[in-house]
Each structure stands twice: as C-alpha cells, then as structure tokens.
Computed example of a mutant assay.
Amino acid sequence: MILDCSILPDDPDELKRIICELQESHAAEVCLLQKQVRHLYDKLFGRKSEKSRYGEESPQLALFDMPEPDPDATPEAPVEVEKHTRRKKGRKPLPDNLPRVEIIHDIDEQEKICHCGAELSRISEEVSEKLDIIPAVIQVVRHIRPKYSCKHCENAAEKGPTVKIAPVPVQLLPKAIASCGLMAHILTAKFVDSLPFYRQERQFDRLGADIFRFIRLKRTLFHEEPLFST
C-alpha cells in the first residue's frame, strides 16, 4: 500500500482503487477496536458469574434468555393477603407529661357580632402545640437562722447569756458557695454532656454569676483546693 503522498499515481482509476483499499483497511481496524473495547468493558464491568449465550469469547449477553415453562409443573395456589390500613404519616405528638401553658388568640369583641346583629357562638377551636423552654435562672438561696435569747437571764453571771439558734444545714461542701443543685448541674454538664468548665464559665457569666468564685469552685472539685476546711 502506498503511504507516501509524493509518489501517488496520476491515474484517477488507480487513485480510486487506493482510496477503496484505505477505506476497507480503516473499517477493519475500527471494527477490531470496537470489539476490543466491548470486550474490555465486559471484563471490567460485567458480571463474572454470567456466561454468554453465544460462547465464552463473545461479550454479547442474551437479552431474552428466559427459562421455558415446565409442562409437568403444578400451578401454584393463589395466596390471599389480608387487607390493612396504612397509617398516615405525620408529626409525632408531644409527650403528655410536659406541662402546658395555654395562650388564647381570640378575635375582637366587635367581630363576634354577626352582620345580622346576633352574637356569634363558639363552635370549636384549633389547637397547635409548640415546644418551648425556660432558660436557666441563677438565684441566691438565703439560709436564715434566727437567734433567740432570754432577756431575764442576760444578767445572770453564773450561767451567762442564753442564746439558741438552729444548727447549720448539712452541705455537700462546707463553706462553699454552691448548693447541691448547682453542684449536680455542674457535674452533669461536665461528665454527662461533656461540657468543659470554661464553657460553663461563659454560661454563668451571661447569667450574672461571679466567675472568680466559680473558678474556685472548679478547683475545689478537682482537689486543687482542700475539700474540707481544717
């Protein structure tokens, strides 16, 4: 086959013959390349367990390879399925154990009068529930212990003044500013909710708590200061 364009013949018939040979050669090469590509795709993405209906070397799979019905097989009996009612999907109702606060959005009294002059009657109502939360509130619990003394015994030198007062309530950490409820809140946030102490300090700071005293409380929890005063 002539590949050099500078030595092509001048005869038109010879040129047509060369062009036809080139077309046939290119068509054969294209067909071969297409087969190789199909074979490669079958090897990469085809099912390894399936076998071709036309032989192992052919990448073409059977399109209508359905099993023929067995004439000796007995027909299967029909199976009855019980009717069922599909539950409508919707929002899950809020728990009944949560307290409810009712807010009534009513129309004006003037709108309760019909155009005929009669008063409208309340026939029903529409209720929609929204989940709300009350933010944390810091408060100070004052433990007041009144003192009592006997005015008649104030001048008695032999027994001295008589003063009575209630004992100090039992505390988790003596002389600490934190109550049992605050201690439980701090420990739960730290060891259950994985909330670091520095983030709790920011929360208490927004609520108006004393950050310095809170830091001392944290040190007390981790034995950086003595648990009990001596």
Score class of each variant (00 low, 15 high):
G46I: 06
I18G: 09
K112H: 03
S49Q: 14
H152N: 08
G160A: 03
D205L: 07
E68M: 13
P12K: 10
I103S: 07
A156T: 12
A189N: 14
R145L: 01
A176I: 11
A118L: 07
L44S: 04
R219T: 11
E225F: 10
L33V: 09
R17E: 07
S124A: 11
R206S: 11
R47G: 07
L217W: 05
A189G: 11
Q110V: 01
C31W: 03
D106L: 03
A166T: 02
T188M: 05
V170G: 09
P167H: 11
I104K: 12
A166C: 00
D10R: 10
E80K: 15
L22G: 13
L63G: 06
F191E: 09
P71Q: 04
E56Y: 12
R213D: 03
L182Q: 09
E154A: 15
D108N: 02
E126C: 12
I107Q: 15
P146W: 01
K43E: 10
E109P: 02
I123E: 12
I107S: 14
A77D: 09
P78G: 08
V30N: 06
Q203F: 02
H185F: 14
M183Y: 10
L33R: 14
P169E: 09
I123Y: 06
E29K: 06
S229R: 07
D193T: 02
R86G: 05
R53I: 12
I107N: 04
P12V: 13
E14C: 07
L207C: 05
S128P: 01
E126N: 11
M1R: 12
E224D: 04
L3Y: 03
C150Y: 13
G55I: 03
E56V: 03
L227R: 15
